[in-house]
Design a protein around this nucleic acid. Structure first.
Length: 517
RNA sequence: GGGCCCGUAGUUCAGCGGUUAGAACGAGCCGCUCAUAACGGUUAUGUCGCAGGUUCGAAUCCUGCCGGGCCUACCA
């Protein structure tokens, strides 16, 4: 294989009972930025996203739609696949849990768990609400004056249900999990999630029911096909299915263990408790890190179906452009926190950070070069302390951004880049190249070279966040495709290279005039 | 009930024991004119949720209270 370092990142696989909204877009975006950064940084990268297509809910939704489950999931899965294009993601593959190879992988994993003695046949019993399709613990139920037992958000009637089920001996894994967390402090991020998971495990683990007989849309248990595997066992396994499991000679197996699973904060437990337990039981290494992203609200309100206030990625990107939306999502909120999607804040970021600070910097520099330096990279003369100060900060950016990306601190990476952009704008004013044009054109050329070179470095680092816009700017600097990876970070602009006519990349957003009514 | 986060300028946040509490955006004023009415400089605003305590010294540590959010397992 390649001798390069590998980097494997995954999104949650999205459950096909929902249409994609900004929350889905967000988790995948984080992975996309990491994947793009690591590719540019010379890593052998694999970036996986996909859909989770089994389970009772899907079976019922398909039935209600008068479709076969397969036809139904084909349809809904496509809307998530379309999001890849809408948001300009760069996954290496889009996995579906209905793929044949995934059945084989899950069944192989199951057999490993059996061989380890961690699976046994028992009986799953509990108070079940048909309306909610959920089991409730005894203390979650109440008996009303009519003698009927009820539970759940709308207090639906529950009945005692018993069904045979296979169990995973999770109860035996508590100490080993705690030891694993202890030895791998980076395994769960952010910190508060780590605390939650540890306290959950310390509270004692019960065995986990890992098969159902109440529906059939799923992966049959080997040797007992009446039983369908618990959807989470099925879903989590996608991450190793992709690497070829159980065939460890598959070339993609080099990517396991994954470097970062990005997940929503609601599914942290499945990824941080069940998943490492399954893997260790099967003799596999758990992933290196699970990062829980927060939730987005809309203009201060929770996203809810009844309010219909979910942000549609297609609509926002059409209105504001893909790159500004990508920038906003990662800059506005520290990754791991909850965020509020405010239209006003998005416009503020677009205008202040992109159009004014960065876009205008490129424009003012490139138009001087075009008008006064003959549309070529200007000659680099003797550098002053001011020149070296600015260039030095631009050079330092790669290491700084790399460190932030490795912590999934995307907002801090962007802050670091934008500090250099602000420095560059200050430098333009301090050097006043328009005045130098009359007094010292040689010095003016050097100033313009320093600026162009600074924009080159900044833009190389902007690439993972805003690929399309960065590419346009690099074209205007005549940086060839092969000089855009970080191995070429120190490959300075060569004076004399011809430059195309500059063009604005981030137009200001002006609220359209209200139509007369 | 138990546990974990959080509450700092209009807004988003940084600071997490030590000089007059910071940044960005937004607002005012000044400058510049290369540029996307962009850029730079500058000013202003805060009982650092409340009340106690520890300390020579607390936004920063401890306790209590108030307010917000999350976790507390088998729908995913």
């Amino acid at each position: 294989m390649s001798g390069r370092n590998t980097f494997y990142t995954t999104t949650p696989i999205y459950y096909v009972n929902d249409v994609p909204h900004i929350g889905h877009a967000y988790a995948t975006l984080a992975c996309d930025v990491m994947a793009r950064f690591k590719r540019l940084d010379g890593f052998d990268v694999h970036f996986l996203t996909g859909t989770d297509e089994h389970g009772q809910k899907v079976e019922k939704a398909a039935d209600a739609a008068g479709m076969s489950p397969q036809a139904f999931t084909d349809k809904v899965s496509q809307s998530f696949r379309d999001l890849v294009g809408v948001m300009n993601y760069s996954p290496d593959n889009f996995i579906r849990t209905t793929e044949k190879r995934h059945y084989a992988s899950c069944q192989a994993l199951w057999e490993k768990l059996v061989a380890s003695g961690d699976i046994y046949l028992g009986k799953y019993a509990g108070w079940y609400s048909v309306r909610d399709e959920a089991f409730y613990a005894e203390d979650e139920t109440t008996v009303g004056p009519d003698g009927k037992r009820r539970a759940g958000p709308v207090n639906n009637e529950v009945e005692w249900v018993e069904e045979p089920s296979y169990f995973f001996k999770l109860s035996a894994w508590g100490d080993r999990l705690l030891e694993f967390y202890e030895k791998n402090p980076r395994f769960i991020a952010p910190e508060s999630r780590r605390n939650e998971v540890i306290s959950f495990v310390k509270g004692g683990l019960q065995d986990l029911s890992v098969s159902r007989t109440s529906f059939s849309w799923g992966i049959p248990v080997p040797g007992d096909p009446k039983h369908i595997m618990y959807v989470w066992l099925d879903a989590l396994t996608n991450y190793i299915t992709e690497c070829g499991y159980p065939d460890e000679s598959n070339p993609l197996w080099r990517f396991w263990p994954a470097d970062v699973h990005v997940v929503g904060k609601d599914i942290i437990r499945f990824h941080c408790v069940y998943w490492p337990a399954f893997l260790m039981s099967a003799g596999l290494v758990p992933p290196k890190r699970v990062f829980a992203s927060g939730w987005w609200t809309t203009e201060g309100q929770k996203i809810s179906k009844s309010l219909g206030n979910a942000i549609d990625p297609v609509a926002v990107t059409q209105e504001f452009g893909v790159d500004p939306v990508r920038y906003f999502l990662l800059r506005e909120v520290p990754f791991g926190n909850d965020g509020d999607f405010q239209r006003r804040a998005l416009i503020g970021r677009l205008n202040a950070d992109l159009a004014n600070a960065y876009g205008n910097l490129c424009q003012r520099v490139l138009s001087i070069v075009a008008k006064n330096c003959g549309s070529v990279v200007p000659p680099k003369g003797t550098l002053t302390d001011e020149d070296n100060a600015l260039l030095g900060r631009a050079k330092g950016l790669l290491a700084a951004v790399r460190a932030e990306i490795d912590e999934q601190a995307f907002h801090r990476a962007l802050i670091a880049i934008w500090e250099v952009i602000a420095d560059a704008n200050r430098y333009v004013d301090a050097q006043a190249p328009w005045a130098l044009a009359k007094t010292d054109p040689v010095r003016r050329d050097t100033v313009m070279w320093v600026l162009a070179e600074t924009i080159r470095r900044v833009t190389l680092l902007v690439q993972p966040f805003m690929p399309e816009s960065a590419s346009k700017i690099l074209e205007q600097l005549a940086v060839p495709q092969e000089a855009r990876a970080y191995v070429a970070f120190d490959q300075e602009l060569v004076p004399g290279a011809a430059l195309p006519k500059p063009q604005g990349v981030f137009p200001r957003y002006v609220e359209p005039a209200k139509a007369a009514s």
